[in-house]
Computed example of a mutant assay.
Amino acid sequence: MKELMKAILVEEEEGVSKMKWADAPYPRPTASGQVLVRVKAAGVNRPDILQRDRKYEPPADASPILGLEVAGIVEQVYGDSRWRPGDEVCALTHGGGYAEYVWVDERHCLPKPAGWSFTEAASLPETFFTVWFNVFQQGRLGANGKSENLLVHAGASGIGVAAIQIAKALGHRVAITARKEHQLAICKSVGADEAILLEEDWSDNLLKRFGKVDVVLDMLGESTFSGNLDVFRPHGRLVYIAFLTGAKVELSIPKLMRKQITLTGSFLRPQSFSTKASIAEDLKNQVWPMIESGKIKPIIERTFPIQEVQQAHELMEKGGHVGKIVLTL
């Protein structure tokens, strides 16, 4: 049995987090119903950067190795599983994705879409799980059986382009905000009905050009909060998944009461394994057929060999990219 594999390890040198491709203990299963995936590609996400810099503490039972999503080939099965060695999958991990091998809950795996590369498939799990949980389960977009209006802030992000494509494929109208002109054009090219520059008057422009919205997916926080309340229809749902521009906001309670707005939000990683399994099942049944039919396409800004993880993180931190950043093995 192997004792070592290669993985990205994080060390602190003079207060700065340094990442290197080095020997690490070969992973072992922690529960029945897991599969060992030989990683071919791993997505880069902002929580990876926070964990790298010790600004985010992963769950106690999670792998200390960075990486929340992978695509690869099933090597082993531990306990009952629908997967078999040789199956090509993409998976939401409980950490550990920046490595040659990772054990994952078999329920959190989805088949690699036909015609997609491992690199493209690795762009799916973290973003699609997040969008489905927050926009459709928490935000209840389309729960009344009718087409609704969705607003996505930071629409050019990996989360943003996923939300655009899923919502459009399910028959909803989508508007986005972004900070740069080229991001607006790309978002419209993947399905956004309207794209608004995130300037001081963004909410007025949205109302003039798109109309009122039913659900807002917001990862910015402070800078967009007041405008969000202005653009809602009655019974709107505001869903937070991050707060990149600040975590504290001033709430006009009468405005919230008049429109009967629901305010919610979540972190994906602390959700139970069963909750994540239910998200995966919904994705398999409702979203994967649209991926297979070509209605949803991979949007990748750039790929890096995993040994160049530092450059990948720098691109993520710089911002301005569109879609996903992916590491390849």
Rank of each mutant, 00 (worst) to 15 (best):
R302W: 07
A167D: 05
A42M: 06
Q260I: 12
W288V: 11
Y78M: 11
E11M: 07
Q183L: 10
Y78P: 06
V190M: 07
K295N: 12
G171L: 05
P59L: 11
E308C: 06
I306L: 13
A122R: 03
H182Y: 15
D23P: 00
E11Q: 12
F225M: 11
A185H: 14
S274D: 15
H321W: 08
T93P: 01
I49F: 06
T328G: 03
G115C: 09
A312P: 05
V104Q: 03
A60S: 14
G294A: 10
L244G: 03
S252Y: 03
Q138R: 15
I49H: 01
P125G: 09
M290T: 08
G79L: 12
A312H: 04
K248W: 08
V309C: 10
A185D: 14
P85C: 07
G67S: 07
Q76N: 13
I291T: 02
V135Q: 00
H172G: 00
I279K: 02
E222I: 07
S278F: 03
S17D: 07
R54V: 05
V35Y: 02
R52K: 11
T303D: 04
K18Y: 07
V152R: 03
P254A: 11
D214K: 05
L315A: 06
I186R: 15
G86D: 01
V231E: 08
S32K: 15
Y101P: 02
Q165F: 10
V74A: 06
H313R: 05
I325Q: 00
G227P: 10
V135H: 02
N205D: 13
I261C: 06
R82C: 05
S272W: 08
I164W: 04
Y26S: 01
V10W: 02
V231W: 09
P111E: 15
E314A: 13
L198T: 05
R258L: 14
A178D: 00
F210C: 07
L170R: 06
N285K: 15
E13L: 13
L329P: 11
R179M: 07
W83S: 05
E14P: 02
L92I: 04
L92H: 02
R52S: 06
G221E: 08
K284E: 14
K180G: 02
G246L: 08
L124W: 02
H153L: 02
L251F: 04
P59D: 02
C109F: 10
T127S: 14
C187D: 03
K188M: 14
L217F: 12
K6N: 11
E308Q: 15
D87C: 08
C187Y: 01
S226V: 14
R302F: 04
F267T: 15
T119Y: 00
F136E: 00
I300C: 04
M316C: 12
G171E: 10
H321T: 12
G33K: 13
R233L: 13
S189E: 14
S123R: 08
P25L: 05
